[in-house]
Design a protein around this nucleic acid. Sequence first.
DNA 1: TATTCCGATAGTGAC
DNA 2: GTCACTATCGGAATGAG
Lengths: 288, 288
Amino acid sequence: MAEAAEDREDLVEDSPDVAHDRDPQTSTSQTAPDKKKRNAFAELMSPKLKAPKSDASDKKPRRSLKSLSPWKGALLDYIKHPERFPNEVLRVTPNTVLVKDGFPKATVHLLLLPRSPKHYDLHPHESFKDLEFLAMMKEEAASAAKIAAAELGRQLSPFSATSKARNDAMDAGVPYDELPPGRDYLSDIRIGIHAHPSMAHLHVHIISRDMHSDRLKHRKHYNSFNTSFFIPVADYPLAEDDERLRTSFQNANLSKDFVCWRCKKVFGNRFAELKHHLDEEFESWKKE
Amino acid sequence: MAEAAEDREDLVEDSPDVAHDRDPQTSTSQTAPDKKKRNAFAELMSPKLKAPKSDASDKKPRRSLKSLSPWKGALLDYIKHPERFPNEVLRVTPNTVLVKDGFPKATVHLLLLPRSPKHYDLHPHESFKDLEFLAMMKEEAASAAKIAAAELGRQLSPFSATSKARNDAMDAGVPYDELPPGRDYLSDIRIGIHAHPSMAHLHVHIISRDMHSDRLKHRKHYNSFNTSFFIPVADYPLAEDDERLRTSFQNANLSKDFVCWRCKKVFGNRFAELKHHLDEEFESWKKE
DNA sequence: TATTCCGATAGTGAC
DNA sequence: GTCACTATCGGAATGAG
């Protein structure tokens, strides 16, 4: 998952996503367009919040956390200073900040961060016991998933047979209500949390199904999204005896054999082979 | 230990030792002196045996062994065709062939190979039950050790305080029988075999004490020479209840923690740290 | 389960 | 315990006056 950009502006320039989608004219947002061209994600950004003046009250605890393990608190910067990350932050609402994961593990990989300190400092199991908070997060996650699906469609539709069929029909003048349905990109977006997050602040993953990414480098990268270690937000509130609450169960998940998310083939511990297979599945999946 | 040169002459060119002793003429050593200077090892080489015309009788069995696991029979080429390896073979007697290890694990690392098929096809434990054979091997190994000691002295004396003291005294005209003793390089040469040799043909290691070599790359490289896995030939014949005959004991030796041969410091499984330490010990040891 | 770097460990293939 | 190659697995540092 993402490590935040800390305070260094140059990390914005290093964003892994900037290369594949620059689009100067889609800039339609309320404020003035940036000098540099912005990608589709950037266009989805809501108007920025004013940065609360940096006060000692939030610097003190953060520094002590940072001095121990800076990366654990990395996401807090997005919450506190979303305006510092124009290329990463897609949307800010009164309740949440939606960002691109800095180390995406799939074609589209976003993080939904609640802004309420009461909730973001707790483990999701605890925070989601607040049903009002849970309902809010489900609602905002559903909205975020639509953004993710739109971005996924933007990237895949050039290859998609389903999209092509609909487009061809449209071009042929088929009446709107007789068009074949387009590809349901939203169905390939998953919403969930990790059972044992490493980063301190609550974050919900909004991630496309493919697991196709150069940033997917380790066994646990894959298994944390493709075993019961990944808990859909829709499953909350969990029953008290849900096995997914048990640490030993979850640790076992992370060291399980690899299983392809699409064809269910088992790859043992052969990560390189899995990666090659995921490339092939991606090519096939793109064309659906 | 050495991997043999197979039948490919180019492996002679690839020998790791050629850098300090490349000499295209050594193949004619009986006759004209070489144009380029030769090192001490090359000078020690005995006149070569006539190559028995390559007959099918020895090629046939060799090929079958090679086709299964070529490297296992690699040493046989030195025994059968010593004349093919002018840069590797130091001496041929009626009983043995003495060669430089192709992958030396110390500053000086030779292999003494018996020429008798009856003996070289057996595990050393078995061959050395023939006490006449054992006596012969001890004698030839002792002689080989002197060759190794001479080469070690050639390499170390420029750095050796002991050697310098003797040389200075000599230069000062001190009478011969009053000279301080020179460094005893022979005491730093060890003679022994590995408890579970991987290569099929009996080979006795004649190796300097230092374990300073770029070719020493793995845990077992070190432990096979610095635990009881290394059995001095002087210890044969072994008692029937010698623990060094037990496979389980020997396997345990190979995975033991590293212990510096010189200062006895323990390095756990930190091979890189051991290597760095061996560099330092070598610098100090050179100067003795 | 943050990443990255380094290094130890494990499996294979060699004709 | 042959080597060399690849890859998996495992720990440690990570900031910064």
